[in-house]
C-alpha cells in the first residue's frame, strides 16, 4: 500500500515535469490555430510539418541553428584546452604565489557575470568584434569553475606516473598531452557537456552582442520570433523543439558525466 502511494506520487511528479514537453512536441505538428482550442489537444488532430517548413523557409532559423552549433563547439573546445592546462599546472606544479592566485580565482566566482558585461561590451566594440563570433568566444576562452574542476581531478593522479615519464626523457608538454589528458577524459567529458549546454542555452550575452538576425544564436532568434508571433503557438513550439532537441540528445548521450559534474561541483573543501 505504502509502495503504491509512493509510486503514484512519483508518477504524478513525472507527469508534471514531462507534460510541457509533450504538449510542445504535439503542438509543433499542428496547423495554425489548432493548438488554440478548448479543451486543449495533446495529440495533433491533423499531423503536419508545415510549422517546421515555415521556420526553414521564411526565417533564418537554419542559420541560427548553425551559429549556436558552431559557437558551442568552438567555445567547448577552446575552453577545455585552456582550462585543462591551467588546472594541471595548479595541481602538479609548485610556483610562487600559487595558493594566493588559486584562492583569488575561487573567491571571485561570487562576482556575477552581469558586472563585467558593460566594459566587456565596450572592449569588444573597440576591437570591432560586436556582432561576430569572437564576441561570444572571447568571454568563454577560459572559466574559473572549469579550472577548479580539472584541478580537483588532477590532484588524484599519482606523481609517480609523471616522474616515471620524466625519467624516460619526456618533455613537460608531452607529459601533459600523452599522459595527463588521456587520464582526464572523464572530467573533460563532464566539463565539455557543461560548457556546450551553457553556451547553447545562454541568452543575455548573445542578446547584447549579436545585432543582426543572421548572427543570432537560437535562444535570441527564438525570443525575437516570440515578439512577432505572440499568437502562433504552433510555430513557436516548432522553434522550441528545434532549440531544445539538440541539448536533450547531448544530455542523454553524456548523462553520466553530467550528473558526476554536479556532484564534483558541489564537493566542498
Amino acid at each position: 500500500m505504502k509502495k503504491l502511494i509512493l509510486h503514484i506520487i512519483l508518477i504524478f511528479i513525472a507527469v508534471i515535469t514531462l507534460i510541457p514537453f509533450i504538449w510542445m512536441i504535439s503542438a509543433s505538428f499542428m496547423f495554425d490555430g489548432h493548438a488554440s482550442v478548448f479543451p486543449p489537444r495533446f495529440i495533433p488532430d491533423q499531423f503536419t510539418l508545415i510549422q517546421y517548413e515555415r521556420l526553414l523557409e521564411r526565417l533564418s532559423i537554419a542559420r541560427n541553428f548553425l551559429n549556436s552549433l558552431i559557437l558551442s563547439i568552438l567555445v567547448t573546445f577552446i575552453s577545455l584546452t585552456f582550462n585543462s592546462m591551467a588546472g594541471y599546472a595548479f595541481a602538479k606544479y609548485k610556483f610562487k604565489g600559487k595558493d594566493k592566485l588559486f584562492n583569488l580565482l575561487i573567491s571571485s566566482m561570487v562576482i556575477p557575470a552581469q558586472v563585467t558585461m558593460l566594459p566587456l561590451f565596450l572592449m569588444l566594440k573597440w576591437m570591432g568584434f560586436i556582432n561576430t563570433y569572437m564576441a561570444i568566444i572571447i568571454p568563454g576562452l577560459a572559466n574559473i569553475f572549469g579550472i577548479f574542476l580539472i584541478r580537483q581531478y588532477c590532484i588524484s593522479i599519482p606523481d609517480s606516473l609523471i616522474e616515471a615519464a620524466r625519467i624516460d626523457g619526456a618533455s613537460d608538454f608531452l607529459i601533459y598531452k600523452k599522459i595527463i589528458l588521456p587520464l582526464l577524459t572523464p572530467v573533460l567529458a563532464t566539463l565539455a557537456i557543461f560548457t556546450f549546454l551553457g553556451t547553447w542555452n545562454d541568452f543575455l550575452w548573445p542578446l547584447i552582442v549579436m545585432t543582426d538576425d543572421s548572427m543570432y544564436t537560437l535562444p535570441v532568434a527564438l525570443a525575437n520570433l516570440m515578439l512577432e508571433h505572440t499568437k502562433d503557438p504552433e510555430l513557436m513550439m516548432a522553434g522550441s523543439v528545434v532549440t531544445i532537441l539538440p541539448v536533450i540528445i547531448v544530455f542523454l548521450a553524456l548523462q553520466k558525466y553530467y550528473m558526476k559534474g554536479i556532484m564534483m561541483g558541489s564537493v566542498k573543501e
Binding site: 515535469t17 510541457p20 504538449w23 542555452n201 527564438l222 516570440m226 513557436m236 522553434g239 531544445i244
Partner: peptide, 17 residues
Amino acid sequence: LPVVTTLVAVAIVWRFI
C-alpha cells in the same frame, strides 16, 4: 530533463501553457 533544456525555449512553452 527540465534542468538541461534551454530556458528561453521553455519560457516560451510556459507562456502558452
